[in-house]
Design a protein around this nucleic acid. Sequence first.
DNA 1: CTGAAAGCGCTTACAG
DNA 2: CTGAAAGCGCTTACAG
Lengths: 349, 349
Amino acid sequence: MTSSRPGPNLSRIATSLGVSIATVSNALSGKGRVSGQLVERIREHAAELGYVPSQAGRALRTGRSGVIGLVLPDIANPLFPKIAQAIEFAASAAGYGVLIADSRGDAATQVEAINRLVERGVDGMVVIPRRATRISSVACPVAVIDTPSTPGNTVSADHWQGGREIAVHLAGLGHQRILIIGNNRESSVQNDRAGGIRAGLRPAMQAETLWIDELERDGGSGCPLGLAERVKQGFTAFAALSDLQALRALTELQQAGINVPADVSVTGFDDLIWSPVVTPSLTTVRMDMDRIAGIAVSALADTIGKSSAREGMLVTAEIERVAMQLIVRQSSGPCEPGIKNLRDGEHVR
Amino acid sequence: MTSSRPGPNLSRIATSLGVSIATVSNALSGKGRVSGQLVERIREHAAELGYVPSQAGRALRTGRSGVIGLVLPDIANPLFPKIAQAIEFAASAAGYGVLIADSRGDAATQVEAINRLVERGVDGMVVIPRRATRISSVACPVAVIDTPSTPGNTVSADHWQGGREIAVHLAGLGHQRILIIGNNRESSVQNDRAGGIRAGLRPAMQAETLWIDELERDGGSGCPLGLAERVKQGFTAFAALSDLQALRALTELQQAGINVPADVSVTGFDDLIWSPVVTPSLTTVRMDMDRIAGIAVSALADTIGKSSAREGMLVTAEIERVAMQLIVRQSSGPCEPGIKNLRDGEHVR
DNA sequence: CTGAAAGCGCTTACAG
DNA sequence: CTGAAAGCGCTTACAG
């Protein structure tokens, strides 16, 4: 016995209409080699029968699955939802399905995840690499989203420029001493951001960087960062390299009785879900995820289109840097009813 | 011209080894109809050539794609990462790939998303339905993850019981007046949670519910909820129906100079990424996502396995309720270095 | 404008 | 234990 799908296929439509399979195929795909009337009749009948083309059949014939892979370092990373949503959106607009793969753990798992996707026959993949991994040859086109400083990168937010935006904003508020708070000294994203902040300081300003990962190397994760002490030392601005750290800083300061933004300022990065919701809401810098995803997916689609480019094609060309956008919230004054402060996606089931 | 994949196929392995395609297929799939020696030789040669089986060919022949779909109401929902990760994990352990689809917007988009997945030939799908949607007949097995009160549901956390855990915890702390904070009166998840809280109160305790969606119906999203006023009225505990609302409450209270947990308590639901990181960290209730995902995926796999069950099979049987686990943090005392307070996934790129 | 035919890569009864 | 053959559903040159 050979297993078959539940629905009708081209052959059934063809016989029931007394035409050939090829004609049905042509009519449905709109290749235009069929007369208008017949196209009409065929389409109608196909719809009536609830015809759903078999991806397997098509894929086998064309060599294209119509699916791309999305490899993420860690789906639990709070940045993931936005990336995934943007990629899914861009991909489905381009007619692709999205297969996800989590490379949790080390670089080896990332390689595994990539291989699994290749085995599933993806036409290409978008990879957001783990820190300090290089994507070596993969058996399909790959678009890498990382920092501009990553070799082989395809597109990314301009984290450096984002950092400058923060610095300029803090300068405008009159801050002199800034504590940059990162949680991973190895991260090129965080280093770019920190570098941008430093580069954007005015001569009179000075910054110091607190790397939480080093602070906590010997345990004690989740303990206070000693920010009240820093305030006594004269720091008036806390520029976290991610909104999660900003949130951590904000609540620690508040708990210590330090008023934000009256006494000190706190800024973040990424405009994550809670940024507009907390009191005071966070000033942050947002990536244009839709644009980044759009560029990555269309670069991928272009490469897939050129059928010559099958094997191990890194979609590089020229790295595109997408500007980040400053979102000022802490100094936005009193809340006025009628003004939408929440981001659109803000709701919980 | 007929397009072909880059790699070798069964035929090439067969010719180069002087055996038949069928034998290669049997050897590689371990169906055991081939002599041990030959199996060995074939496997070796296949590995040498870097043979990757064609999913398309296999799918066309077997009628199974080896891929399941995951339909989410809104990927931007902060609960998503955990669900997606758990499903991806369970699915890949069971040998399935996961195709994602976001049903953002209304119920109509959800139907579209489901159809897209069916068109891509998924063998089944896990659906986390939008509020108040019923999953009607789909052309493949479906496992629904929602509340126990949803008809046709397959598995879910026991939100009601989770609510009781919160109530018992607050009772133990001696609270008498509790403000429940929800953000969506329509959500059955939130209603179950609120119901559980009320059911768990001791006679002397009383609760009132604040629905943010109603409060903000006329605009003003993101404005303070007036919690300081509630404290004056005598409320000493704020039980949010999601960690996002808990965070909102916490920061609003802190900003008003009310000390948490000394003056009042704040609790949440879901143990989202920030819960252990903020000061004070949040007491919350966690779903066992791995278990829920495992049950959903294996129920799905079972149904797919029975080849009779192709069309529109809702995987129901008996609804499984997975207990939620209380995580007490706010009263956990001073931070001791060396103790891991952060959840494992807590890191940002 | 329409159709007959080949073939994508695989698996599975069936025959030897 | 091994192989020849059929067929899953589709698309695409090619012929008419």
